[in-house]
Design a protein around this nucleic acid. Structure first.
Length: 159
DNA sequence: GCCAACGTTGGC
DNA sequence: GCCAACGTTGGC
């Protein structure tokens, strides 16, 4: 048995923010169209925890914690010709894109801004804070995860 | 709104 | 298979 893995998921709050996740309960994380990000989605397992990051926001930063409640399966939007995420190269037999289902775990009492994340020593090596990286799904170390929670005074004891 | 960085596309 | 053009991301 391996332990829980940690991730960071980016979303634009104008489109779908942490409050929306709390409202809907479970959300398919569809629309990822980058191979590296897709591969991280496929590496996720039920029970993994993810920092929910608000991009293109003021401030940009971590808004809460989510949990993976279903492992990777084919992204439905790749088959939907009416969707911006439609991919004609995908077929039911050979789907190109994957999604996982996530559920809310804990809203942060305030957004942990990117500037604050940058200032945390544990995060120095993360792609999140490196210039020019645009990955929307990325792995987080246990140390980074803990540092983020600590910075906003959240305890994982209840979950 | 600007623009740097980067991934993808497509002509050759 | 190269690489210029283009589109997108995302902080500021």
């Amino acid at each position: 048995m391996r332990g829980v893995q940690y991730w960071l998921l980016k979303s634009e709050p104008d489109v779908f923010g942490y409050a929306d996740l709390e409202r809907v309960g479970v959300e398919p994380w569809n629309g990822v169209r980058n191979y590296q990000a897709r591969n991280f989605l496929r590496a996720m397992e039920v029970g993994d925890l993810a920092l929910f990051y608000h991009s293109n926001a003021t401030p940009a930063g971590v808004a809460g914690v989510a949990r993976v409640v279903r492992a990777a399966y084919p992204d439905d939007l790749q088959f939907d010709s009416g969707s911006a995420y439609f991919d004609a190269r995908s077929s039911a037999l050979e789907p190109r894109w994957s999604m996982v289902d996530v559920a809310p775990v804990q809203a942060f009492p305030r957004v942990l801004s990117l500037a604050e994340v940058r200032a945390l020593p544990a995060w120095a090596e993360s792609p999140l804070v490196q210039r020019g990286t645009r990955l929307s799904v990325l792995p987080v170390t246990a140390l980074q995860f803990r540092a983020a929670l600590e910075a906003v005074g959240v305890s994982s004891g209840a979950w």
